[in-house]
Design a protein around this nucleic acid. Structure first.
Length: 226
DNA sequence: GCATTAACCACAG
DNA sequence: CTGTGGTTAATGC
């Protein structure tokens, strides 16, 4: 990872114009921008954490070690915040963040972040909204994970990549089969088999990680019903 | 019983 | 890393 002074971080992003001014003279521009290559760890579970991270560019997976295997909790696409729950909620990270593409992130010390929250209600409100949306998303995902069959869970995630990450029916799956299994909570073999089945039934077409969704409505039905 | 679902193991490209 | 086959266990008609 290569550190730089932050050039274009959340101070300027999302229509938040004057946060930098509101910090006051005692708080100069206090964040550090860093670049991560694909596969590099942005922050690690169980490590001490005192930064809020604003992901400017890239794609990141959040992972947590389980008893059996590593669980992939979520995928986050820039622009977004990383580590709000894990930095604000405890001293120690409860999950890791790993870059899945070359990514750029901006690190803000938690004391600076707290000051921003105190000084700017609109900013605080936006943060609360983002946290709430994430929680709602996790609730949905939780129920789906527990109650749907694997076929439905896989379909749901393929749709999620398409709709939330790439905005296209034709994309490169950002995971290998084993990671896909860690995301959907199943075995690598089952993922292979189900992807083959979806291909045979002409619901998707697949070459390695390059997927095209051919029949979205059926995929949606599979996702809903399991 | 029998079918379905899915995990685990093994092995081959 | 990936796909497939065999086996096995659990669950539901």
């Amino acid at each position: 990872m290569k550190a730089d002074k932050c050039l274009n971080c959340f101070y300027q992003a999302d229509g938040i114009n004057s946060l930098n001014d509101e910090l006051g003279d005692g708080f100069p521009h206090q964040c550090v921008q860093a670049n991560f290559k694909k596969g590099e760890i942005i922050f690690k579970e169980n490590a001490l954490s005192s930064n809020i991270i604003y992901l400017q560019k890239g794609l990141v997976k959040l992972t947590k070690e389980g008893i059996q295997r590593t669980q992939i909790l979520n995928i986050r696409k820039a622009p977004c915040y990383l580590g709000l729950p894990t930095t604000m909620g405890d001293k120690i990270n409860h999950y890791s963040a790993i870059a899945m593409e070359d990514s750029t992130a901006c690190f803000v010390d938690i004391s600076v972040f707290r000051r921003l929250l105190n000084k700017n209600p609109d900013f605080s409100y936006d943060i609360i909204v983002e946290l709430c949306r994430n929680e709602l998303g996790q609730f949905e995902r939780c129920v789906k994970l527990v109650q749907n069959q694997i076929y439905g869970r896989l379909a749901g995630n393929l749709l999620y990549f398409s709709e939330e990450i790439y905005d296209s029916d034709d994309y490169i799956i950002p995971f290998n089969r084993s990671e896909l299994a860690d995301l959907v909570c199943t075995s690598r073999e089952t993922i292979s088999r189900l992807l083959s089945e979806l291909t045979e039934d002409n619901i998707i077409s697949l070459k390695g990680k390059h997927i095209k969704i051919l029949n979205k409505s059926i995929l949606q039905k599979i996702s809903e019903k399991g």
